[in-house]
Nucleic acid binder design. Structure first.
Length: 485
DNA sequence: GTCAGTTTCCC
DNA sequence: TGGGAAACTGA
């Protein structure tokens, strides 16, 4: 149907009433039927969304749009089609200003709603009512607005092993989760930011809850406690005006762990609060739940100036591990009984360390690209806090001087390493005097260990025996001769 | 009974 | 508030 026809149908008349609206309905219906037959743009490849903004093909179009020779973005699948006009005058004539006054970003917050109302996103008063350039311009705007949707970004991740999860029975504050860039002198907190257009946003409400470390991120039974966490809720609720500050830091946010026997109860509570950001349901068993690791999940609700609300996709933080748990804690070497040994290895060393799991630990020797492991069996791990092991041989058996290498504890499951300590490899024959001493000791040991007489000794003994015998014979001869005389 | 993980207590 | 350690629990 031609635009002029539509316009003529909508001329204000005194008789216009229900019949005119019926006619509008009919026009919309007719148009929507035609729309169905139109080729639709292909969905964008998923990897496009992951491109940096500067490399994003659509973004680059947008970036150049302010230039004088403004390029025209043509929707896929429409460039080759004959010109077709959308019924924009319909909107122009509408009494309702809902569509035209809707905040652009509000309209762009949902792809579904945008496609539903895409034509209405164009500002009909500023453009011609027909022709492909108008249509393309409208599509461009629509796409720009879709792409320029506000988004929630974690700008300061939580520190992964900064704190210990506390039980409720400990009757104390659960501490505060620090930011990953926190230092002793400059403490930071996990923070989020609303990025993108916020012109028509009145208020932002963020719900923070705990979810499991692994996909799918299910609600975690542990609780968030602190300043913005309503008593007993286990979640954190904050509301802020993004025009004052796009960023919000979560100070005084602690993790309170629940006892194993209270897991179900806690999950039920979360369910009753309607907290399941990724709609995972509760089908999976809780037996495989990692109690020592959680992620923060941020669910953001935007409230527009016209009072309507939109939700952004939930965003999760990096993983936070319980500092106390043996399976996830920071590894630490307290001391070794000796810090030097020959480059041939096999030196027995006693190591004291913080709690380890004997089936998930190794002792890593390293220097540059060279790496080797200390040798020990699980039975050599004593009550999780001491390990008796043998040093590995150094890569170079012909070193002429001492060589320092790093020794660290390494958890196999997550490749986490302790701070290294230095171990010194000594040359194979470091001291000639030492060698002589060792040889002397060795011969003495041989003599003691082998008291039997050797061949040389036999001959000596025999000669000694002969000389003694000869001496006594002579003596006897002299004595007998003198007595005969 | 041993061991390792969990929970609670307290400095 | 941080952390050590005892007490408890279950395999």
């Amino acid at each position: 149907m031609k635009d002029m026809d539509i316009v003529s149908h909508l001329q204000p008349t005194s008789e216009r009433g229900v019949s005119d609206f019926d006619l509008i309905d009919e026009i919309i219906k007719e148009d929507s039927e035609q729309s169905v037959a139109l080729p639709r743009p292909c969905p964008p490849p998923t990897d496009l969304s992951e491109l940096p903004r500067s490399q994003h093909p659509r973004m680059s179009v947008r970036q150049s749009s302010s230039q004088s020779s403004r390029p025209v973005l043509v929707s896929r699948g429409t460039a080759h089609l004959p010109p077709r006009s959308f019924p924009q005058p319909l909107l122009q004539m509408s009494d309702s200003n809902e569509m035209t006054s809707a905040p652009p970003s509000r309209a762009a917050t949902s792809l579904a709603s945008s496609s539903r109302r895409g034509q209405g996103l164009c500002q009909p008063t500023s453009r011609s009512s027909s022709g492909v350039s108008s249509q393309n311009q409208g599509d461009t705007d629509m796409l720009e607005r879709i792409l320029e949707k506000p988004r929630l970004v974690v700008v300061e991740e939580p520190k992964d092993r900064g704190m210990r999860f506390r039980y409720e029975c400990e009757g104390r504050s659960a501490g505060s989760i620090l930011g990953v860039s926190s230092t002793d002198t400059n403490k930071t907190q996990p923070a989020i930011e609303i990025q993108g257009p916020i012109d028509f946003i009145k208020r932002v409400t963020v719900t923070v809850s705990l979810v499991t470390k692994d996909l799918p991120h299910r609600p975690h039974p542990h609780c968030l406690v602190g300043k913005d966490c309503p008593n007993g809720s286990g979640i954190c609720l904050v509301t802020f005006n993004p025009h004052s500050n796009r960023r919000h830091s979560f100070a005084n946010l602690g993790i309170q762990c629940v006892r194993r026997k209270e897991l179900d109860l806690s999950l039920q509570k979360r369910s009753s609060q309607n907290i399941d950001p990724f709609k995972t349901g509760h089908t999976k068993g809780i037996e495989d739940l990692d109690m020592n690791a959680v992620r923060l999940c941020f669910q953001c609700e935007l409230e527009w100036e016209d009072g309507r609300k939109d939700s952004l996709s939930p965003v999760v933080s990096s993983t936070i591990y319980d500092k106390k748990a043996t399976t996830t804690s920071q590894l630490k070497i307290t001391c070794l009984n000796q810090y030097k040994g020959p480059c041939t290895g096999k030196t027995e060393i006693y190591m004291l360390c913080d709690k380890v799991q004997k089936d998930d630990i190794e002792i890593r020797f390293s220097r540059g690209s060279w790496k080797a492991n200390g040798e020990f069996a699980q039975t050599d791990v004593h009550r999780q806090i001491a390990i008796v092991f043998k040093t590995p041989p150094y890569q170079d058996q012909n070193i002429t001087g001492e060589v320092d290498v790093n020794v660290a504890l390494r958890r196999i499951s997550d490749q986490m390493e302790s701070e290294p300590v230095t171990f010194t490899y000594l040359p194979h024959n470091p001291d000639p005097y030492e060698v002589k001493r060792k040889c002397r000791v060795k011969s003495e040991i041989s003599f003691r260990e082998k008291p039997c007489v050797t061949g040389g000794a036999w001959i000596s003994s025999f000669l000694f025996f002969l000389s003694v015998k000869f001496f006594y014979s002579c003596l006897l001869f002299l004595v007998c001769g003198s007595s005969l005389n």
